[in-house]
Protein backbone atom coordinates (compact mmCIF):
# COMPACT_ATOMS: atom_id res chain seq x y z
CA UNK A 1 0.00 0.00 0.00
CA UNK A 2 0.99 3.64 -0.36
CA UNK A 3 2.72 5.33 2.52
CA UNK A 4 0.75 8.06 4.28
CA UNK A 5 2.91 11.10 4.98
CA UNK A 6 1.73 13.40 7.75
CA UNK A 7 2.84 17.05 7.46
CA UNK A 8 3.80 18.22 10.92
CA UNK A 9 4.24 21.65 12.45
CA UNK A 10 5.29 23.16 15.77
CA UNK A 11 5.87 26.56 17.33
CA UNK A 12 9.29 25.41 18.58
CA UNK A 13 12.21 26.35 16.33
CA UNK A 14 14.23 23.35 15.18
CA UNK A 15 17.45 24.96 16.44
CA UNK A 16 16.13 24.96 20.03
CA UNK A 17 18.24 22.60 22.12
CA UNK A 18 16.04 21.88 25.12
CA UNK A 19 12.50 21.52 23.86
CA UNK A 20 12.83 20.60 20.21
CA UNK A 21 14.90 17.40 20.71
CA UNK A 22 11.80 15.83 22.27
CA UNK A 23 9.91 16.43 19.04
CA UNK A 24 12.79 15.12 16.97
CA UNK A 25 12.76 11.92 19.02
CA UNK A 26 8.97 11.72 18.75
CA UNK A 27 9.13 11.90 14.95
CA UNK A 28 12.04 9.50 14.70
CA UNK A 29 10.20 6.89 16.75
CA UNK A 30 6.97 7.42 14.84
CA UNK A 31 8.82 6.85 11.58
CA UNK A 32 10.61 3.74 12.87
CA UNK A 33 7.43 2.18 14.16
CA UNK A 34 5.35 3.51 11.26
CA UNK A 35 7.57 2.06 8.52
CA UNK A 36 5.92 -1.35 8.87
CA UNK A 37 2.46 0.23 8.66
CA UNK A 38 2.97 2.67 5.81
CA UNK A 39 3.07 5.74 8.03
CA UNK A 40 5.51 8.62 7.91
CA UNK A 41 5.71 11.97 9.72
CA UNK A 42 7.57 14.88 8.15
CA UNK A 43 8.24 18.20 9.87
CA UNK A 44 7.46 20.98 7.39
CA UNK A 45 6.88 23.99 9.64
CA UNK A 46 9.00 24.42 12.78
CA UNK A 47 9.21 27.76 14.56
CA UNK A 48 8.31 30.93 12.71
CA UNK A 49 10.05 29.90 9.50
CA UNK A 50 7.40 28.36 7.31
CA UNK A 51 4.32 29.39 9.27
CA UNK A 52 3.40 31.74 12.08
CA UNK A 53 2.60 29.55 15.13
CA UNK A 54 -0.57 31.55 15.74
CA UNK A 55 -1.83 30.09 12.45
CA UNK A 56 -1.01 26.48 13.12
CA UNK A 57 -4.34 25.87 14.87
CA UNK A 58 -6.19 26.91 11.73
CA UNK A 59 -3.79 24.94 9.55
CA UNK A 60 -4.34 21.69 11.44
CA UNK A 61 -8.07 22.38 11.50
CA UNK A 62 -8.24 22.74 7.72
CA UNK A 63 -5.79 19.96 6.94
CA UNK A 64 -2.95 22.14 5.59
CA UNK A 65 -1.02 20.51 8.46
CA UNK A 66 -1.85 16.98 9.64
CA UNK A 67 -0.22 17.07 13.05
CA UNK A 68 1.04 19.78 15.39
CA UNK A 69 2.90 20.08 18.68
CA UNK A 70 1.38 23.35 19.85
CA UNK A 71 0.78 25.25 23.10
CA UNK A 72 -2.76 26.31 23.89
CA UNK A 73 -1.85 29.99 23.83
CA UNK A 74 -1.32 29.70 20.06
CA UNK A 75 -4.77 28.29 19.34
CA UNK A 76 -7.00 29.73 22.08
CA UNK A 77 -8.82 31.84 19.50
CA UNK A 78 -10.30 28.62 18.13
CA UNK A 79 -10.78 26.96 21.49
CA UNK A 80 -10.65 29.41 24.42
CA UNK A 81 -10.48 26.58 26.96
CA UNK A 82 -7.08 25.58 25.53
CA UNK A 83 -5.62 28.22 27.89
CA UNK A 84 -6.70 26.15 30.89
CA UNK A 85 -3.93 23.60 30.33
CA UNK A 86 -1.35 26.11 31.63
CA UNK A 87 -3.23 26.05 34.98
CA UNK A 88 -3.28 22.28 35.39
CA UNK A 89 -1.51 20.91 38.45
CA UNK A 90 -2.20 17.22 37.86
CA UNK A 91 0.20 15.13 35.76
CA UNK A 92 -0.84 14.22 32.24
CA UNK A 93 -1.05 10.53 33.14
CA UNK A 94 -3.81 11.44 35.57
CA UNK A 95 -5.51 13.67 32.99
CA UNK A 96 -5.78 10.67 30.70
CA UNK A 97 -7.78 8.69 33.24
CA UNK A 98 -9.64 11.22 35.39
CA UNK A 99 -11.93 12.54 32.67
CA UNK A 100 -9.87 15.54 31.52
CA UNK A 101 -9.06 13.98 28.16
CA UNK A 102 -12.65 12.76 27.93
CA UNK A 103 -13.73 16.40 28.29
CA UNK A 104 -11.08 17.90 26.00
CA UNK A 105 -11.29 15.40 23.13
CA UNK A 106 -14.88 16.16 22.02
CA UNK A 107 -14.28 19.92 22.45
CA UNK A 108 -11.19 19.75 20.24
CA UNK A 109 -13.03 17.60 17.70
CA UNK A 110 -16.03 19.89 17.56
CA UNK A 111 -14.35 23.30 17.55
CA UNK A 112 -11.08 22.48 15.84
CA UNK A 113 -11.64 19.35 13.80
CA UNK A 114 -8.68 17.66 15.51
CA UNK A 115 -8.03 14.55 17.55
CA UNK A 116 -6.42 15.47 20.88
CA UNK A 117 -3.59 12.95 20.98
CA UNK A 118 -1.99 14.09 24.21
CA UNK A 119 0.17 16.70 25.89
CA UNK A 120 3.69 17.00 27.23
CA UNK A 121 5.90 19.72 28.67
CA UNK A 122 3.94 19.82 31.94
CA UNK A 123 5.76 20.33 35.21
CA UNK A 124 8.04 23.01 33.78
CA UNK A 125 6.95 26.22 35.46
CA UNK A 126 6.96 29.81 34.26
CA UNK A 127 9.04 32.35 36.14
CA UNK A 128 9.59 36.08 36.34
CA UNK A 129 13.15 37.00 35.44
CA UNK A 130 14.20 40.46 36.60
CA UNK A 131 16.98 43.02 36.29
CA UNK A 132 16.28 44.49 39.75
CA UNK A 133 15.09 42.71 42.91
CA UNK A 134 11.51 42.64 44.16
CA UNK A 135 10.44 42.91 47.78
CA UNK A 136 7.71 40.37 48.36
CA UNK A 137 4.86 39.34 46.10
CA UNK A 138 4.45 42.59 44.21
CA UNK A 139 5.47 43.91 40.81
CA UNK A 140 4.53 47.53 41.56
CA UNK A 141 6.73 49.82 39.52
CA UNK A 142 7.95 46.97 37.31
CA UNK A 143 7.59 46.81 33.56
CA UNK A 144 7.58 43.20 32.44
CA UNK A 145 7.83 41.83 28.92
CA UNK A 146 5.12 39.21 28.59
CA UNK A 147 2.37 37.66 26.50
CA UNK A 148 -1.30 36.90 27.12
CA UNK A 149 -0.14 33.93 29.21
CA UNK A 150 1.19 36.25 31.91
CA UNK A 151 -1.06 39.26 31.49
CA UNK A 152 -3.68 38.69 34.19
CA UNK A 153 -1.04 37.68 36.75
CA UNK A 154 1.31 40.61 36.05
CA UNK A 155 -1.58 43.02 36.40
CA UNK A 156 -2.81 41.35 39.58
CA UNK A 157 0.66 41.91 41.06
CA UNK A 158 0.47 45.60 40.16
CA UNK A 159 3.00 45.45 37.31
CA UNK A 160 2.83 46.85 33.78
CA UNK A 161 3.07 44.43 30.87
CA UNK A 162 4.92 45.28 27.66
CA UNK A 163 4.73 43.12 24.56
CA UNK A 164 7.65 42.78 22.14
CA UNK A 165 8.86 39.95 19.95
CA UNK A 166 11.40 37.79 21.85
CA UNK A 167 14.06 38.92 19.36
CA UNK A 168 13.82 42.47 20.73
CA UNK A 169 13.72 41.49 24.37
CA UNK A 170 17.51 41.54 24.81
CA UNK A 171 17.88 45.17 23.77
CA UNK A 172 14.81 46.07 25.83
CA UNK A 173 16.22 44.48 28.98
CA UNK A 174 19.68 45.90 28.53
CA UNK A 175 18.44 49.42 27.85
CA UNK A 176 15.83 49.34 30.61
CA UNK A 177 12.76 49.56 28.37
CA UNK A 178 11.45 46.89 30.74
CA UNK A 179 12.71 45.43 34.01
CA UNK A 180 12.15 41.77 33.37
CA UNK A 181 10.24 39.13 31.50
CA UNK A 182 8.09 36.10 31.97
CA UNK A 183 9.45 32.85 30.50
CA UNK A 184 9.50 29.13 31.31
CA UNK A 185 12.27 27.79 33.50
CA UNK A 186 13.86 26.28 30.42
CA UNK A 187 15.52 28.11 27.60
CA UNK A 188 16.54 31.67 28.54
CA UNK A 189 20.04 30.89 27.25
CA UNK A 190 18.69 30.37 23.74
CA UNK A 191 18.17 34.15 23.62
CA UNK A 192 21.27 35.17 25.58
CA UNK A 193 19.15 36.79 28.28
CA UNK A 194 21.23 35.30 31.11
CA UNK A 195 23.74 38.07 30.40
CA UNK A 196 21.34 40.88 31.28
CA UNK A 197 19.03 39.19 33.80
CA UNK A 198 20.00 39.24 37.47
CA UNK A 199 17.19 37.47 39.31
CA UNK A 200 14.70 34.65 38.91
CA UNK A 201 11.69 34.74 41.19
CA UNK A 202 10.96 31.48 43.00
CA UNK A 203 8.49 29.86 43.12
CA UNK A 204 7.49 29.37 39.52
CA UNK A 205 3.84 29.39 38.55
CA UNK A 206 1.51 27.83 35.96
CA UNK A 207 3.00 25.17 33.69
CA UNK A 208 4.36 24.92 30.21
CA UNK A 209 2.40 22.56 27.99
CA UNK A 210 2.64 21.29 24.44
CA UNK A 211 -0.53 19.70 23.09
CA UNK A 212 -0.34 17.22 20.23
CA UNK A 213 -3.21 17.53 17.76
CA UNK A 214 -3.99 15.47 14.63
CA UNK A 215 -6.39 16.69 11.94
CA UNK A 216 -9.58 14.72 12.50
CA UNK A 217 -10.10 13.73 8.85
CA UNK A 218 -6.51 12.54 8.68
CA UNK A 219 -6.94 10.66 11.96
CA UNK A 220 -10.09 8.89 10.77
CA UNK A 221 -8.36 7.78 7.56
CA UNK A 222 -5.52 6.13 9.48
CA UNK A 223 -5.75 2.40 10.10
CA UNK A 224 -6.04 1.23 13.73
CA UNK A 225 -2.43 0.08 13.52
CA UNK A 226 -1.29 3.51 12.33
CA UNK A 227 -3.29 5.23 15.06
CA UNK A 228 -1.66 2.93 17.59
CA UNK A 229 1.80 3.93 16.38
CA UNK A 230 1.05 7.61 17.09
CA UNK A 231 -0.63 6.84 20.41
CA UNK A 232 2.28 4.72 21.61
CA UNK A 233 4.87 7.29 20.64
CA UNK A 234 2.93 9.99 22.44
CA UNK A 235 2.41 8.02 25.65
CA UNK A 236 6.05 7.04 25.68
CA UNK A 237 7.09 10.70 25.45
CA UNK A 238 4.68 11.70 28.21
CA UNK A 239 6.09 9.07 30.55
CA UNK A 240 9.72 9.76 29.70
CA UNK A 241 9.22 13.47 30.00
CA UNK A 242 7.77 12.98 33.45
CA UNK A 243 10.86 11.15 34.65
CA UNK A 244 13.47 13.27 32.90
CA UNK A 245 12.12 16.77 33.45
CA UNK A 246 13.35 17.13 37.04
CA UNK A 247 16.90 16.59 35.78
CA UNK A 248 16.50 19.38 33.25
CA UNK A 249 14.76 21.61 35.80
CA UNK A 250 17.80 21.14 38.01
CA UNK A 251 20.36 21.65 35.27
CA UNK A 252 18.59 24.80 34.02
CA UNK A 253 18.62 26.28 37.55
CA UNK A 254 22.31 25.39 37.88
CA UNK A 255 23.10 26.90 34.48
CA UNK A 256 21.34 30.12 35.43
CA UNK A 257 23.11 30.26 38.78
CA UNK A 258 26.46 29.74 37.06
CA UNK A 259 25.74 32.68 34.74
CA UNK A 260 24.76 35.02 37.56
CA UNK A 261 20.97 34.73 37.55
CA UNK A 262 20.25 34.56 41.29
CA UNK A 263 17.07 33.08 42.74
CA UNK A 264 14.89 35.39 44.82
CA UNK A 265 12.95 32.94 46.95
CA UNK A 266 9.67 34.18 48.33
CA UNK A 267 8.94 32.60 51.71
CA UNK A 268 6.02 32.25 54.08
CA UNK A 269 3.14 34.66 53.64
CA UNK A 270 4.64 36.33 50.55
CA UNK A 271 5.06 32.99 48.82
CA UNK A 272 1.49 32.08 49.69
CA UNK A 273 0.19 35.41 48.43
CA UNK A 274 2.22 35.08 45.21
CA UNK A 275 0.92 31.61 44.39
CA UNK A 276 -2.64 32.41 45.40
CA UNK A 277 -2.63 35.50 43.21
CA UNK A 278 -1.34 33.43 40.29
CA UNK A 279 -4.06 30.85 40.75
CA UNK A 280 -6.80 33.41 41.19
CA UNK A 281 -5.78 35.60 38.24
CA UNK A 282 -5.05 32.64 35.95
CA UNK A 283 -8.35 30.88 36.57
CA UNK A 284 -10.35 34.11 36.41
CA UNK A 285 -8.95 34.56 32.90
CA UNK A 286 -9.98 31.01 31.94
CA UNK A 287 -13.50 31.48 33.35
CA UNK A 288 -13.87 34.74 31.43
CA UNK A 289 -12.94 33.02 28.19
CA UNK A 290 -15.10 29.93 28.70
CA UNK A 291 -17.65 30.19 31.53
CA UNK A 292 -19.22 26.84 30.58
CA UNK A 293 -16.25 24.47 30.49
CA UNK A 294 -13.93 26.51 32.72
CA UNK A 295 -15.40 25.28 36.03
CA UNK A 296 -15.49 21.67 34.80
CA UNK A 297 -11.85 21.62 33.83
CA UNK A 298 -10.78 23.37 37.02
CA UNK A 299 -12.42 20.61 39.04
CA UNK A 300 -10.51 17.99 37.03
CA UNK A 301 -7.05 19.53 36.76
CA UNK A 302 -6.51 21.38 40.04
CA UNK A 303 -4.65 19.32 42.61
CA UNK A 304 -6.61 19.30 45.85
Amino acid sequence: ADTVTLKAGTFLPSVDRIWYPHIRTWIKRANEAGAAHGLQVKMVAAGFKAMNPFQMGNAVKSGVLDLVHLSGTFYNKLLPIADAQKMSTVPVQQQRTNGTFALLRPLHAEKMNVHYLGRWGDGVNFHFYLTKPIQGASLKGFKIRGTSVYQSFIEALGGVMITTPPSQAYAGLERGVFDGLGWPLWGIHAWGWQKVLKYRVEPGFFTAEVSVLVNLDTWKKLTPAQQKVLNDVQIRLENEFGTKREETNKSQRALQARDGVKAIVLEGAERKKFLETATRAGWADVMKKDPVNGPKIRKLTELK
Binding site: F54, Q55, A59, S62, G63, V64
Partner: peptide
Protein backbone atom coordinates in the same frame (compact mmCIF):
# COMPACT_ATOMS: atom_id res chain seq x y z
CA UNK B 1 -1.03 23.05 0.70
CA UNK B 2 -4.01 20.84 0.01
CA UNK B 3 -6.56 22.22 -2.50
CA UNK B 4 -9.18 24.60 -1.14
CA UNK B 5 -7.75 24.38 2.37
CA UNK B 6 -4.57 25.77 0.82
CA UNK B 7 -6.42 28.72 -0.71
CA UNK B 8 -8.03 29.51 2.64
CA UNK B 9 -4.55 29.31 4.15
CA UNK B 10 -3.36 31.80 1.52
CA UNK B 11 -5.95 34.30 2.74
CA UNK B 12 -5.00 33.76 6.38
CA UNK B 13 -1.33 34.20 5.54
CA UNK B 14 -2.11 37.44 3.73
CA UNK B 15 -3.94 38.85 6.74
CA UNK B 16 -1.52 37.80 9.47
CA UNK B 17 1.70 38.48 7.58
Amino acid sequence: LGGEAGLMQLVRNAVWS
